[in-house]
Design a protein around this nucleic acid. Structure first.
Length: 778
RNA sequence: GGGCUCGUAGAUCAGUGGUAGAUCAUCCCCCUGGCACGGGGAAGGCCUCGGGUUCAAAUCCCGACGAGUCCA
């Protein structure tokens, strides 16, 4: 698509906008359009301009459609109104609009449509990527007779003329076209539909090639989510139309055509995503099958509620559900406004923002910009300066100097700490912020306006920040070498003890890859290459290194600061060590997947790396000491101990059961009473719940009613009743438990309960025969 | 950024507070000349982790970790 724009402002609002006056408006725009079409070789007599008001995205205005030989080639939009409840104009979308202070020309010329027009192919798709269309048609086995080909050609041309705004129903439009061509609508559909799907595949593949080629990583959030949706839709189309080629191959055809260099990565991403989709579908299918079976059994249709759940939480489209449900002869209840129902489920979003600005820029507006000494010599930690201004705050003082060595918080690097001293006072600096060009030091004492101060930066803290900052560049660079060129930074944070960087990647990172990255990053450290900074014109920097230098965000200003470390170049305002060797070493502490498609690496550099390694080592040594083996033997020994522990657990269970059987058989210490013709055994064991249950089970095996109690942990009971005996175990336990201050219950043949009052256990058990009789009578 | 769902045997999943289950896979036995199938049996569980509620938690509540999904 091609376009030109003009930003106009009304004369009475001069000075309020970045632009003023009128550049050009409707007449001139149409004139330009005429000229362009003529230049392209169009017969100007065949051009028709149709005015049609435009509304969209809260703005509106007149618009002109440019039709050439019946085909819409361009739209010229004149945006001049904005949505306004009290506006004087009521437009076609039912909203009210009022005039804006500015008015903007927004044009769109369909370059590809022009190509189509000039080539005379059936559709625009054959005009712009004929090889791909041919490949897909052949692969899917779509073959037409000469007459059919003519029909399709004619239908395509008619479709091209449809005013998309006015087409509410594609089926109606198809009917109109069929009428016009004098054919049956069903015949037209079977003829055209597969072809339409092929066009969609080719076009989606191009979209995917663009998105993936430009380094977007599929994800469940943001732009990455869009890629995923397009990819899945394309995969569905490929399967529907019966194209027998892997999707990564199709996308690659477009990536190749568009001249992307990272084609291997693109294919890899597509393959990974297709596999993920396949798994999702499989999971979904199993789920739907279960539901379908369930509802089919009850003779009810699958309710909308379930469909929403399937779609929203599991990503299964209603039509997929219908397909599967059909096999189970289950009905499906899909409402027409299905997606509206889903939307309603999400409800209203609350957008309360609380970006409280601690420092008001106005406070320091009159002060000159602070000279930033930390860029001149990043290794110096001492300096002298004059106090230009001091403002008292609730919790201290904001001090502004003429120059400073203190680095203000920014670019993911925390502020420096340190002191500012005069002959009389020493103020601790606990925070440093940049406000406009002024650097503000937050201190606990007032050094005095106009005083001469000596500044001392906490050098251990700062050096750790420098190490971590340079390490961040190296880790990011190393990750790029190991994982691929698509690796982009999604955020970073440095501190004294560790640093982290979020990288976009399409699959989880293996332990081996982490080790590789760590090894490579440390190799850069050991090479001890200089880390250089330079201030350059941003346009020159972009021209030479591309937009990839903005990994950490896009800085302001025409001059930007570049940091070169190894082969890595980034725009960066942070402080860095002067040689990579100064980092000491880099230890990657761990990775986590912070969201789909974003991996967080946490690592430590310098002292912190040593400390982190020592911490892990200490944990290992401690474990080794407990097990009384060497650290190397810890995994094996732990495994053996774990296995043994499981083995013993099983043995204990077996013994408990044997013990229970023995107790039940001997029944020496249990009291026996006859309830009707059944023997009830009342026994106190003082054992855990497992043993009580086992004993009760063993007694029931012998055809006896079991009432066992324990005072081991509070008071606990298990009551079990053999089949065919008219005693409800739940009632018995309920009565027993209430006497020890608790509760209980369970099925009629096996109940458990207890309470905190173990003192009352004995009395409760003594009352058990009476309770049993009472319950039987009830 | 927000919402929702899930985490139980090697795999797929049941289990809505009261004795942890099914199917497949594994191993053993039977059936057969052999194989497929079939029949019988066994083994296999820190119910993701940490708190809380309860006489009692796989189950309810909170948090962490992991997986999935929808929306902006």
């Amino acid at each position: 698509m091609m376009a030109h724009h003009a930003f106009n402002a009304r004369e009475d609002v001069e000075g309020e906008y970045a632009y003023e006056g009128e550049v050009y408006w409707k007449d001139k725009t149409v004139e330009y359009c005429d000229t362009l079409l003529e230049e392209l070789g169009a017969d100007i007599e065949e051009v028709t301009y149709i005015e049609d008001p435009w509304v969209g995205g809260g703005n509106a205005g007149p618009a002109i459609e440019v039709i050439y030989k019946g085909l819409e080639l361009a739209t010229l939009v004149f945006m001049s109104m904005e949505q306004d409840e009290d506006g004087e104009y009521l437009l076609k979308d039912g909203n009210r609009y009022s005039k804006m202070d500015t008015y903007v020309v927004d044009t769109g010329y369909g370059l590809e449509r022009w190509t189509w027009m000039s080539q005379g192919t059936a559709t625009v798709y054959e005009a712009i990527y004929p090889e791909m269309i041919e490949f897909l048609r052949e692969n899917a086995g779509i073959d037409y007779t000469e007459d059919e080909e003519k029909l399709v050609h004619a239908a395509a041309r008619l479709s091209g003329n449809l005013d998309i705004d006015d087409v509410d129903d594609v089926e109606d439009a198809r009917g109109d076209i069929a009428d016009e061509l004098g054919v049956d609508v069903d015949q037209l559909r079977t003829l055209v539909e597969p072809l339409e799907q092929i066009y969609a595949i080719a076009d989606h593949c191009r979209t995917l090639a663009y998105m993936l080629g430009d380094g977007i990583v599929p994800s469940n959030v943001g732009t990455g989510y869009l890629v995923r949706m397009v990819l899945r839709r394309t995969k569905r189309l490929v399967d529907t139309v019966g194209v027998d080629a892997p999707l990564d191959e199709l996308v690659d055809m477009q990536a190749d055509r568009l001249g992307y260099q990272n084609r291997d990565t693109i294919r890899d991403v597509v393959r990974t995503e297709v596999e993920k989709y396949r798994e999702t579908l499989e999971r979904g299918t199993r789920r739907v099958e279960q539901l379908a079976e369930e509802y089919a059994r009850e003779g009810e249709p699958i309710p909308t509620e379930e469909l929403v759940e399937l779609y929203d939480s599991h990503g299964i489209q209603p039509d997929t559900v219908e397909e599967i449900a059909e096999e189970y002869e289950a009905g499906v209840d899909v409402p027409d406004d299905f997606y509206a129902v889903v939307a309603r489920r999400h409800g209203q979003e609350s957008d309360d923002e609380d970006d409280a600005e601690d420092l008001a820029p106005d406070d320091f507006a009159d002060l000159p910009g602070t000279d930033r000494l930390y860029y001149e010599d990043q290794n110096r930690m001492e300096f002298e300066a004059v106090v230009l201004d001091v403002s008292e705050r609730d919790d201290g003082y904001d001090v502004v100097l003429d120059q400073t060595m203190f680095y203000p918080e920014g670019g993911g690097q925390p502020a420096d700490h340190g002191t500012l001293s005069t002959d009389d006072v020493t103020a601790d600096v606990t925070d440093v912020q940049q406000v406009g060009d002024v650097i503000v030091h937050h201190a606990d004492e007032d050094p005095g306006k106009g005083e001469f101060v000596r500044g001392q930066v906490d050098s251990r803290r700062r050096r750790q920040h420098m190490r971590h900052h340079t390490a961040t560049h190296l880790v990011s660079h190393a990750a790029r070498q190991i994982l691929g060129d698509h690796i982009r930074q999604a955020g970073a944070q440095k501190s004294t003890d560790s640093a982290r960087i979020d990288l976009k990647h399409y699959e989880s990172v293996s332990r081996e890859q982490v080790e590789e990255i760590e090894r490579l990053a440390n190799e850069y450290v050991m090479q001890n290459v200089p880390v250089e900074q330079e201030w350059v014109d941003r346009n020159e920097a972009e021209a030479e290194y591309g937009f990839d230098i903005y990994q950490g965000g896009v800085p302001e200003g025409t001059q930007i600061r570049l940091i070169h470390a190894e082969e890595d170049t980034q725009a960066c305002g942070g402080t860095h060590v002067s040689r990579t060797g100064d980092i000491g070493s880099i230890k990657i502490l761990g990775t986590e997947r912070v969201q789909d498609g974003v991996i967080r690496f946490t690592y430590a550099a310098g002292d912190a790396a040593v400390e982190a390694t020592q911490r892990t080592e200490n944990a290992l040594l401690e474990a080794a000491e407990i097990l009384d083996v060497t650290p190397q033997d810890v995994p094996e020994t732990a495994k053996r101990f774990f296995d043994e522990w499981k083995e013993r657990g099983k043995r204990v269970d077996e013994l408990k059961e044997e013990l229970a059987a023995a107790r039940a058989g001997g029944s020496g210490d249990g009291e026996e009473v006859e309830i009707d013709s059944t023997t009830a055994v009342i026994q106190r064991l003082d054992a855990d719940m497992d043993e009580l249950r086992a004993t009760a089970n063993a007694l029931v095996e012998d055809g006896k009613i079991a009432v066992v109690g324990s005072g081991a942990e509070g008071a606990q009971f298990v009551v079990a009743v053999p089949d065919g005996v008219a005693v409800d175990a739940g009632d018995v336990v309920g009565e027993l438990a209430s006497r020890v201050g608790g509760g209980g219950g369970g099925p009629p043949d096996f109940a458990q309960g207890g309470g905190p009052d173990s003192e009352a256990l004995e009395a409760a058990l003594e009352a058990a025969p009476d309770i049993l009789k009472q319950v039987r009578n009830a």
